[in-house]
Simulated assay, not measured.
Amino acid sequence: MAQTQVDDLNIESQTLLTTPRELKAKLPLSDSARETVAAGRQAVRDILDRKDPRLFIVIGPCSIHDVDAAHDYAARLKKLADEVQDTLLLVQRVYFEKPRTTVGWKGLINDPYMNDTFKIEDGLHIARKLLLDMAEMGLPTATEALDPITPQYMQDLITWSAIGARTTESQTHREMSSGLSSPVGFKNGTDGGLDVAINAMLSVRHPHRFLGIDSDGKVAVTVTRGNPYAHVVLRGGGGKPNYDSVSVALAEKALGKANVSTNIMVDCSHANSNKDPALQTLVMENITNQILEGNQSIVGLMVESNLKHGNQSIPADLSQLEYGVSVTDGCIGWDDTENAIRHMAAKLRDVLPGRKA
Rank of each mutant, 00 (worst) to 15 (best):
M1K: 13
M1Y: 07
A2M: 08
A2Y: 09
E22L: 02
K24F: 08
A25R: 14
L27Q: 12
L29E: 14
S30F: 09
A33P: 03
G40H: 11
G40C: 08
I47W: 06
R50V: 02
R50F: 15
K51G: 14
K51P: 03
D52V: 03
P53I: 11
G60S: 09
P61R: 11
P61G: 09
S63K: 11
H65N: 07
D66K: 01
D72S: 07
A74F: 02
A75I: 06
A75L: 09
L77F: 01
K78P: 00
L80C: 05
D82K: 13
L89P: 08
R100I: 06
T101N: 03
G104M: 10
D111H: 03
G123A: 07
I126M: 10
A127T: 15
K129Q: 14
L132H: 11
T141G: 06
P151T: 09
Y153G: 02
L157H: 12
A165D: 02
R166M: 07
T168I: 06
R174K: 13
E175R: 03
F186K: 01
S203H: 10
P207E: 10
L211N: 03
I213W: 04
V221Y: 04
T224V: 08
V233A: 02
N242R: 07
V246D: 12
V248G: 05
A249P: 03
A249Q: 12
L250Q: 15
A251K: 13
E252T: 12
E252I: 11
K253C: 04
L255R: 13
K257E: 14
A258N: 08
N259Q: 13
S261A: 08
N272G: 10
N274Q: 13
D276F: 03
Q280H: 04
T281Q: 13
M284T: 11
T288K: 02
Q290A: 07
I291Y: 06
N295I: 06
I298E: 00
M302V: 14
V303R: 00
N311L: 00
T328A: 10
C331M: 10
D335Y: 13
N339T: 13
I341M: 08
I341N: 03
R342S: 05
A345T: 01
L348I: 04
R349I: 00
D350G: 11
G354Y: 06
R355V: 08
K356R: 14
